[in-house]
Design a protein around this nucleic acid. Structure first.
Lengths: 188, 188
DNA sequence: TTCTGATTGTGATGTTTGTCACACGACATA
DNA sequence: TATGTCGTGTGACAAACATCACAATCAGAA
């Protein structure tokens, strides 16, 4: 049951009464996608913030020449969207696409605001999640400043060993900011 | 008056009644630092989240060999700390040091929690700030993935033109993840 | 002023990484 | 079976960048 997973996920940070979770649940809808499907298309409006129940997503930016750059991967229990476009109601600068078949729970910005207004705990929950995301981003930046391709790959292996099994190496290369050829030559 | 600046800063996002701001203000203390002083020392506890009233700070990481890597600069109206160490009560992995004489307002984690608990608006404010920080971090990551040193420098010039006037180029180079020699050769 | 330290520019050289090209195997489909 | 796509490895070469060395400039302190 999808919603049970969300309840368990939230309760890792804050305890919930049953009626509180019922209130939370009422703000989400569930959606299913197939490998290759787009949840967000670059240039379009972003309707939802997504909670990944199962599957795997990539958040990526495509430049004019068509090259793809991967900003992040999202696995089970991760929250994902084009944050800027979602919160600021602007057009998406990135796209969100399935690497595997994926089940998500989605919430609109309107729903998000109502949820936070109606249940202060959830504003606290989202703040905690946002802080965690901010910390992770800072460490990734530090990895770019301090390390070369080999070291960045080792750090990725150490931090997200599960990911390497599920993601094509060409996409890992894009995430690390190197060409797929360079990544291929690192193992040596 | 320092506190008037903080009030104005918060009111850019949320309106405040006078008694509400008095409540907010009571959670902060003010501190003054000279150029070169440390607000946070790598390896020590992080007591405060800082709001920069005036001056300029650098948040940086020093590796074993003593090389310095700059994670971010903080100017007027910016919030800064070793976020991970502050929120998770761990030892600082980075240091925070003055590039110029700097006045700040500080709040302890205990004070922060009391403030958010006592005034829901402030939890909302910090969530907005955190989202903004997260967006900025993502764009910096994207800059590392998609761009070479020249392009990253141009993006920095465009985004924070004020900064270039106030920060030594050797520090800008560290922020961009290139050697100072390479940065020096880019203008050509 | 004179000295010292901090900052920056620049040449020479080697390492790292990107780009282009091609080959190979896995897999799905007709 | 034949055919095409996708992911991956690898060689050859060029571009980007780091490192080391040295010189020049500037600001502040004695």
């Amino acid at each position: 049951m999808m919603h049970g997973q969300l309840k368990h996920h939230i309760e890792k940070l804050i305890p919930l009464a049953d009626d509180e979770f019922a209130f939370i649940r009422s703000h989400f809808i569930s959606q299913n996608f197939k490998k290759g499907d787009f949840l967000i298309q670059q240039g379009e409006n972003v309707l939802y913030l997504y909670y990944v129940v199962s599957g795997l997503l990539k958040l990526s930016y495509n430049d004019e020449s068509g090259k793809e750059y991967i900003v992040s991967f999202s696995m089970e229990d991760w929250w994902e969207s084009d944050i800027q476009a979602y919160y600021r109601r602007t057009k998406a600068t990135m796209s969100l696409q399935c690497i595997e078949d994926t089940d998500v729970l989605c919430i609109t910005l309107e729903g998000y605001k109502k949820l936070c207004a109606g249940l202060q705990k959830m504003e606290h929950f989202f703040l905690e999640k946002s802080i965690g995301g901010h910390i992770a981003s800072q460490q990734r930046i530090l990895s770019f400043i301090t390390s070369n391709a080999t070291e960045r790959y080792e750090q990725l292996l150490k931090r997200y060993p599960q990911l390497i099994q599920r993601v094509p190496k060409s996409l890992l290369a894009s995430y690390l900011g190197v060409s797929r050829e360079t990544l291929s030559r690192l193992s040596s």
